[in-house]
């Protein structure tokens, strides 16, 4: 497996904080690997993923030290749209990710931003919705769907940009058992397609999907021993 993502000696401190929330984190993730990131609330799991996605320090300001290489290229040298073509991010709350009046518009948003021609956008809309099994909901209002379905639409919207790395930030936490099963199946399918996946998880039942489980404790990454 070639390295897809490399983090070396990463330190991060929020603007108003006195102490670093991430302390000397080094991590290498191979292509097609599924990583689960566990830890107590507020330990910095989401912060680490925001650093990986380039959200920090662009949207969340703070002091960032160290290096993150995405497909061998420093993330600091890439713009957020450039990151978006390589890395997709599915957030915890689907309501804050969906903003279009129809599912079709929601999926087309990313490809439209990339200035893709109309037939290519159409192709990506159909492919992404088919991938998550939601093609029949194409013309519906996303806010009229169930929680699990909304999260699938959020995932399809990310997949329309064809990223190789996917981050799920507690994407299953607000879903019922049916919704969870839908997303878990998608993670399995994406894994079989060779996508690199990072899952932030609280629920230990979901980490069975992972090849490797990492525990973030007091700002450092340690091997997961079975409990937080």
């Amino acid at each position: 497996m070639t390295n897809h993502l490399e983090i070396s000696h990463l330190w991060f401190r929020h603007q108003a904080a006195s102490d670093y929330i991430l302390k000397d984190i080094s991590l290498t993730i191979g292509r097609g690997e599924v990583i689960a990131l566990v830890g107590l609330s507020g330990c910095g799991k989401s912060t680490l993923c925001y650093c990986i996605a380039g959200i920090i320090p662009r949207i969340y300001p703070g002091e960032l030290k160290g290096e993150i290489l995405l497909e061998g290229k420093p993330i600091t040298e890439m713009t957020l749209p450039q990151v978006a073509c390589r890395l997709g991010f599915v957030f915890q709350n689907p309501d804050n990710q969906l903003f279009s009046p129809t599912v079709e518009d929601e999926i087309a948003f990313g490809p439209e931003n990339l200035c893709l021609p109309q037939p290519e956008i159409e192709k990506r809309v159909v492919e992404s919705l088919s991938m998550v099994g939601m093609l029949q909901h194409r013309y519906k209002n996303p806010h009229h769907l169930s929680g699990g379905q909304k999260q699938l639409i959020a995932l399809a919207a990310v997949l329309a940009l064809n990223p190789e790395i996917l981050i799920f930030d507690e994407a299953l936490s607000q879903l019922d058992s049916r919704g969870k099963a839908m997303i878990q199946q998608q993670i399995r399918d994406l894994k079989s397609k060779g996508k690199t996946i990072i899952m932030i998880e609280h629920d230990l039942n979901n980490i069975v999907l992972a090849d490797r489980v990492l525990h973030l404790k007091q700002g450092a990454l340690i091997a997961y021993s079975g409990s937080f």
Partner: peptide, 11 residues
């Protein structure tokens, strides 16, 4: 964040 990570204002 969701918009920026879907290439909003890429061009």
């Amino acid at each position: 964040m969701a918009m920026e990570l879907r290439a909003f204002r890429a061009y």
